[in-house]
């Protein structure tokens, strides 16, 4: 299940959306999250849904892949839908069977909430699928730059994030390796009582920490030798470039907002 999960993953590509500046994408998603709350009737929700599918289309991510990868999230969505469907008791009674009563308002609320949920999840997933984590970090670092004035360590946070991203695959491999080595020595992580299982985690965690600390030490040495001494006086190799496309993307959001305001009740 975890292998299939695509929430938060990045798939390289060359679509219009892939090529956008991470800053415009971050602002776009942030704006979209706000705009979603403008919708309050069938036509506005339909518009939101249509807009989301348009974005997915432009990103050239296969819908099947997106739905398949977000299954766990979608199950949660269906659950919320049913919750609203069964427990909202307003409007006309549509259907009645034994103790189950379905009201018009319940159906409506269920659909609205689900659509809202769906477009938010899809849109943020499109962001992470089309933007490499390091680009997101770069985008955040630049967008948060003004906060340096209030002593927010923006550069340090961004560096920490980029190093974490760099080492996630390495540490995942390491975890797998140590787990296999202990399994080969008869350790069993999936059997026994809770306390037995907790005990079985120790042989995994100790080596993992030892190795992570060793890596951190080596990395700190390497960084120092290569002249790292904080953010001051540093230049940036990763440059962000704001193009016409980025402006267009944000404008499309403004248009959407306008249309929603026009149609909402």
């Amino acid at each position: 299940m975890m292998e299939k999960m695509i929430f938060g993953r990045f798939i390289p590509g060359d679509s219009f959306i892939h090529r956008l500046d991470p800053r415009s994408k971050l602002l776009f998603v942030l704006g979209f999250i706000i705009i979603v709350f403008l919708a309050n009737n069938t036509i506005t929700y339909a518009l939101l849904l249509a807009f989301t599918f348009l974005v997915i289309l432009v990103s050239r991510i296969r819908l099947y892949f997106l739905v398949n990868g977000l299954k766990p999230v979608l199950i949660l969505m269906i659950f919320t839908f049913l919750l609203h469907l069964f427990f909202t008791q307003e409007g006309n009674l549509l259907w009645e069977w034994r103790f189950i009563n379905i009201y018009e308002e319940g159906l409506r609320q269920g659909i609205y909430i689900s659509v809202r949920f769906l477009v938010l999840v899809f849109m943020t997933t499109v962001l992470t699928l089309t933007t490499s984590p390091i680009s997101i970090t770069d985008g955040l670092e630049t967008l948060l730059d003004p906060f340096k004035k209030v002593k927010l360590p923006v550069h340090e946070l961004a560096l920490m994030m980029s190093i974490a991203l760099r080492f996630i695959p390495t540490l995942m491999d390491e975890t797998d390796k140590i787990m296999k080595a202990q399994m080969a020595r008869g350790s069993d992580l999936s059997a026994g009582s809770l306390s037995q299982r907790l005990k079985a985690v120790v042989p995994l965690l100790v080596p993992l920490f030892v190795s992570a600390f060793k890596r951190a030490e080596d990395l700190a040495t390497a960084m120092e030798v290569r002249g790292y001494r904080g953010g001051e006086g540093r230049t940036r190799y990763r440059q962000l470039k704001w193009d016409l496309e980025d402006t267009v993307a944000l404008l499309s959001l403004v248009v959407l907002a306008g249309v929603l305001i026009y149609f909402r009740q």
């Binding site: 490499s132 984590p133 390091i134 980029s162 190093i163 991203l165 760099r166 390495t170 060793k214 890596r215 080596d218 990395l219 390497a222 960084m223 290569r226 002249g227 790292y228 001494r229 006086g233 540093r234 230049t235 940036r236 190799y237 990763r238 440059q239």
Partner: peptide
């Protein structure tokens, strides 16, 4: 010694640029 523990950048070019950035070399 350890190839993994001295690779700072997320990609090859970022890693090569790391010392340059630290020393304030122009873009």
């Amino acid at each position: 010694q350890n190839p993994d523990n001295q690779f700072v950048g997320t990609t090859v070019q970022d890693d090569v640029a790391f010392s340059l950035e630290n020393n304030g070399v122009p873009y």
